[in-house]
Design a protein around this nucleic acid. Structure first.
Length: 875
RNA sequence: GGGGAUAUAGCUCAGUUGGUUUAGAGCACCUGCCUUACAAGCAGGGGGUCGUAGGUUCGAAUCCUACUAUCCCCA
């Protein structure tokens, strides 16, 4: 059976994924004889589809988990999803709307039934997509943050924190989404530049004909004004101090107060203070004890406190107010104004700052161990530059608003008594019991208690993820939890360092007294070639599955990893995936060469013996480097070292050296060594390119179902011959030089050449002549103590080499080249001499460094001398 | 407004406690090759004085200061 000349990933990828699943290679169970290696997936949003960022960070996780598995660890990668309250609820509401059902007209239970149906039907596409990428998760362990046990953990934690006094109710200016009818976290708000208007409104001063002018983008909120604020240093308004201003249209007098907050440069220097509808105004209000008048209802319409335009939408009201003001001649002017307006990430509605009662977690105490254990590197952030960011956040941590006005999520386990007091309990019965104790009223019934309508923030589930996926709350002493927790590495994006990572660390210490993971690898953010973050709005994100179809999963994985230094954003170019495929194709063809060889019992040629010895050492050399890169999470570098080992060393040198002349057979010994090397290479490449390596692994020979590269053992580091690497490097450099001469002189590789060498150590040349011959077609090697006339010359270290070339030498060009090299060496010598002539260098620098400089000087001087001689010889 | 990060070849990045040459890699580029595994390939080559200005040091891409530019986070 002959192999296709081009590697076609789609022929094999599904086949091997299925095989791995059937053989249960991804499955893990506690094995005390083995060291556990655990990763929990950053749970993707249940509504999500695979995008570049997911591919990036899941590829990294897969590389880590596959390598750990090959190293003989009990590798466990737990997959799963979070329930994404807001996004999912929005999807379900839309779905219902299409069916003609209004969320407000159905019960909570009915809604939840629809939501679960939606989840079962449409949720979790992303996990199927991860399989295409090759993700070797233990799918039997898949978890979901809304499933029963995980939810129970969330409730348990809420109750526990409440008991400890960390949970409180508070009034807070929240980002209110009037369309989604919920408060949003800051990170769920997108700021967009919006073309609006700045309205200049005239407020009359009480008891005078004088007036002041305020500039605002939100005239519809004037009815909620509690004061006018001026800067105490603003001399323009000294005369207004202590007076009152009258709100137009409703003719209400409000005080004129003074506060440094007011920017004298901005607007008119007079600020209307609306404590209920602006976060900064709210703070001013607190400082000056101002009345809070909330005139906007939850649905974004003006309520009766507004007195006028009651029931109008805020944007409609804005226009109408402007018109009314104009009619009363109280609108000084309108001008165009661009400002940054927050929009809901989910519904795209303009965010309304709104005062509301929410549930909060007090963070100051909780944060302490999480702070310390990152600062002292018990938990390592990779790259460490994120420690600074983390530190800053932890030192300025704010309380965490955990309530969301939604149904899809864990309902807050707080039960309100008729008098407005409340109890917090795991369930209805417990709540009733507590309520009875609290009130002393034994006649209370379940119906008298009303559970809080809100649910908990999704992060309040996912911060427990590393613990709850192993049922560490439900059953704290279970075998899985004891074995797999704490987990090893967490791979995620820096954008959720606070929202998720920091909170998991907090939860780890608070609930288990221990770190949840040892290393946090923060990947870069995938951007497009213009440096823009990939987003749905911009439509600049390539179709992830389309990329896999086009370049193969292995190609995409390699393409992503090529430019993925930890913590550095990567500018994604599809070309990189193509390069990934090219690499696969290269290996495919290397295998085609090996597979097509005819094997015979015969003597091994010297160059093949050399090649074997060299590659064995070279492989070990690279293996050490790769392991070192992995130990430092330099995944991209580990891949690049592997890439060069395979492409440059194995294909370009090793295979070229052992390849028999056309039509001849290869000796058995070399063939077998080559197959072994090939298997070694497939093994270390497997984490990066799982599909291709598995396919070739099975092409090599008929193997049993269990004999797969995915479970092959990662190579052991062995001692190796350093000298052979050094010598071979010299020989390859010589080969390169000879090829260079052929290229520049237009000499065909088929034309054999003679090589003369002027050297003190002839050994290396003698040993490697067959290698040099095979790669550079040198039929004769001679040693000389004199210059060779009519020859091109070049240096290998301080050895001078000559290739006679009668009649073909262009003397002028030759002189030019020698002169160029001479100039370089002279310049170099000068810099070395400068150092050595500096007494302070010689006396202060380590002896080793001085020694090195002296050697450099001697080498350079010798080289300069021979170059000058050559120049003289050429006349 | 507060905090953080980054600046090295055309592009994307390495450069690990300051000293292995006058700074490396991949891609791109240029030249020559359809050599029988691979033209999505092979061989060879050019290209940067390390954002700017100072400082510390025998020695700075590397440490310090200021400036400039870009990005991120928080308000």
């Amino acid at each position: 059976m002959s192999l296709a000349t081009k590697y076609n990933p789609s022929d094999i990828e599904d086949k091997w994924y299925k095989h791995w699943m059937e053989q249960k290679f991804f499955a893990s169970k506690p094995d005390p004889k083995k060291e556990p290696y655990t990763i929990v997936i950053p749970p993707p949003n249940v509504t999500g589809v695979l995008h570049m960022g997911h591919m990036m960070n899941n590829t990294i996780q897969d590389v880590l988990i596959r390598r750990a598995r090959m190293q003989g660890k009990e590798a466990c990668w737990v997959p799963g999803m979070d329930h994404a309250s807001i996004a999912t609820e929005a999807k379900v509401v839309n779905m219902l709307k299409e069916k003609g059902i209004n969320k407000n007209e159905i019960t909570r239970d009915e809604f939840m039934k629809h939501a679960w149906e939606w989840k079962e039907k449409y949720g979790g596409i992303i996990l199927q997509q991860l399989k295409k990428l090759g993700a070797s998760c233990d799918w039997d362990r898949e978890r979901f943050t809304m499933e029963e046990d995980m939810s129970a953990a969330v409730i348990e934690v809420f109750v526990d924190l409440h008991k400890k006094g960390y949970i409180y109710r508070g009034t807070r200016m929240v980002n209110w989404d009037p369309e989604g009818q919920t408060a949003l976290a800051d990170d769920e708000v997108n700021f967009k530049e919006v073309q609006g208007k700045m309205y200049h409104i005239r407020y009359q001063i009480e008891g005078s004909d004088d007036h002041l002018i305020i500039a605002t983008t939100r005239p519809e909120t004037i009815m909620a004004d509690a004061a006018i604020c001026i800067n105490p240093n603003d001399e323009r308004f000294t005369h207004l101090k202590g007076k009152k201003a009258i709100i137009p249209l409703i003719n209400k007098a409000i005080p004129i107060i003074e506060d440094d907050y007011v920017d004298m440069e901005f607007g008119t220097g007079c600020l209307k203070v609306t404590p209920a509808h602006d976060i900064n105004d709210h703070e001013i209000g607190l400082r000056h004890n101002l009345e809070v008048i909330d005139i906007i209802a939850d649905n974004g319409k003006l309520n009766d406190k507004a007195q006028i335009l009651v029931g109008e939408d805020r944007f409609v009201a804005r226009k109408k107010i402007a018109k009314l003001l104009k009619e009363k001649d109280q609108l000084e002017k309108e001008e165009d104004y661009t400002n940054n307006v927050g929009h809901s990430e989910r519904t795209n509605a303009v965010i309304e700052p709104k005062l509301s009662t929410q549930w909060f977690v007090k963070m100051e105490e909780l944060v302490k161990p999480a702070y310390e254990n990152v600062m002292n590197d018990n938990i390592k952030l990779i790259p460490p530059k994120f420690k600074n960011t983390y530190k800053h956040w932890m030192e300025n941590v704010r309380d965490w608003c955990i309530s969301r006005q939604l149904w899809w999520g864990q309902r807050i386990p707080a039960y309100f008594l008729p008098d407005g007091d409340f109890v917090v309990a795991q369930n209805d019965e417990e709540a009733l019991q507590l309520a009875k104790e609290k009130t002393g009223n034994q006649d209370l019934k379940a119906d008298d208690l009303k559970q809080d309508e809100d649910v908990l923030d999704t992060w309040f589930s996912s911060w427990l993820w590393p613990i709850s996926v192993f049922d560490g709350f439900k059953d704290p002493d279970n075998e899985d939890f004891n074995y797999y927790y704490p987990t090893n590495d967490l791979v995620t994006g820096p954008d959720i360092l606070f929202f998720w990572v920091a909170r998991m660390i907090i939860a780890g210490y608070e609930f288990k007294g221990e770190l949840p993971f040892k290393n946090v690898y923060l990947t870069g953010i995938v951007r497009d070639d213009k440096g823009r973050k990939m987003s749905k709005q911009l439509g600049n994100s390539p179709d992830a599955l389309g990329l896999i179809d086009k370049h193969g999963a292995d190609g995409v994985r390699v393409g992503l990893l090529f430019s993925a230094a930890a913590g550095n954003d990567l500018l994604f170019e599809e070309k990189l995936c193509e390069q990934g495929w090219n690499f696969g194709n290269k290996i495919w063809n290397a295998y085609r060469l090996v597979e097509g060889l005819e094997v015979k019992e015969k003597d091994t040629p010297i160059e093949a013996m050399k090649a074997r010895d060299w590659f064995e050492a070279r492989f070990q050399d690279a293996l050490r480097e790769i392991n070192d890169h992995f130990s430092k999470f330099r995944i991209s570098d580990a891949l690049m070292t592997t890439y060069k080992l395979i492409w440059d060393d194995f294909c370009s040198y090793y295979l070229e050296l052992v390849k028999p002349p056309y039509g001849e057979a290869i000796d058995k010994e070399t063939y077998e060594a080559t197959i072994t090397f090939f298997e070694d290479i497939l093994t270390i490449l497997h984490p990066f390119m799982p599909f291709l390596t598995e396919e070739i692994w099975h092409q090599i020979t008929d193997r049993g179902d269990k004999d797969c590269v995915i479970v092959n053992h990662w190579p052991i580091e062995k001692d190796y011959d350093q000298a052979i690497l050094h010598d071979a490097k010299t020989a390859f450099e010589l080969v390169s030089q000879i090829r260079n001469i052929r290229a520049s002189k237009g000499i065909s590789p088929k034309e054999a050449l003679t090589l003369h060498v002027k050297t003190k150590s002839e050994m290396i040349y003698q040993e490697y002549i067959s290698v040099i011959d095979k790669l550079a077609n040198i039929e004769e090697l001679a040693f000389t103590t004199e210059k060779i006339d009519q020859a091109v010359s070049f240096f290998i270290g301080s050895d001078e080499c000559f290739i006679p070339m009668e009649g073909t030498i262009d003397v002028e060009k030759e002189k030019e080249e020698i002169q160029k090299e001479l100039d370089y060496n002279k310049g170099f010598l000068k810099s070395v001499k400068k150092k050595l002539e500096n007494e302070r260098f010689v006396s202060n620098a380590p002896a080793q460094v001085v020694e090195m400089e002296k050697k450099k000087q001697a080498d350079a001087e010798a080289k300069i001398k021979t170059l000058e001689d050559s120049l003289a010889n050429l006349g």
